[in-house]
Simulated assay, not measured.
Amino acid sequence: MNQTGLSLLAVLGGVFLAAQGGFNSNLAVLLKNPLLASVAAFFSSTIFAVAFVLLSSKSSANWTEVKQIPLYLWFTGGLFSVMGISLYYYTIPKLGISTMISLGLFGQLAFSIVAGHFGWLNLPVEPITFKKGAGFVILISGIILINIK
């Protein structure tokens, strides 16, 4: 897939994340518990993910490869997902969806720029350049404008 197609998929992924945050924060309010809403969201996500794997998977790791995967990789992403998503569900009804998503975006951008610069999490190194720094400042300016009351 070309860069334009991948970029459009990334934007669509962002739309889906914002929409699910809206739906599931409503669920959290009605359940009176953002962690319980996370359980419901992750349970249904598991069902959909298994269905998508069964329908689309061409290949998977073999048992020898699976046994070589470090134990922390099986759980850390899930832990961070539950923490991040639960915080979304907790803060959206209190801050509003645009405020929460924009502040969440700030956290994602700040971490991703630092993590990319240093190659954290075993990801490709993406040095901080002037252009990337300027883009970050412009995005932060937009986030500030969104949040000015």
Rank of each mutant, 00 (worst) to 15 (best):
M1E: 08
Q3V: 15
G5C: 05
L6C: 07
A10D: 07
V11T: 03
G13Q: 13
F16E: 05
A19C: 06
G22Y: 04
N24F: 06
N26V: 15
N26G: 15
V29I: 11
V29K: 13
K32N: 14
K32Y: 03
N33L: 01
L35R: 03
L35Q: 02
L35Y: 14
A41D: 06
S45T: 04
I47P: 03
I47E: 08
A49H: 02
A51G: 10
A51K: 00
F52Q: 05
V53P: 03
L55N: 08
S57G: 15
S57P: 01
K58Y: 10
S60F: 15
T64Y: 10
L73D: 09
T76A: 15
L79E: 09
S81F: 11
V82C: 08
V82F: 08
M83H: 01
M83V: 14
S86Y: 06
L87W: 04
Y89S: 04
Y90S: 08
G96D: 10
L103Y: 08
G104L: 10
F106L: 15
Q108S: 11
Q108F: 03
S112Q: 03
I113Y: 00
I113T: 08
A115N: 02
G116A: 11
G116R: 01
L121A: 10
L121S: 13
P124S: 08
P124I: 03
F130S: 12
K131E: 15
K132R: 14
A134F: 07
G135L: 04
F136E: 12
V137N: 04
I143N: 02
N147C: 10
I148L: 15
I148H: 09
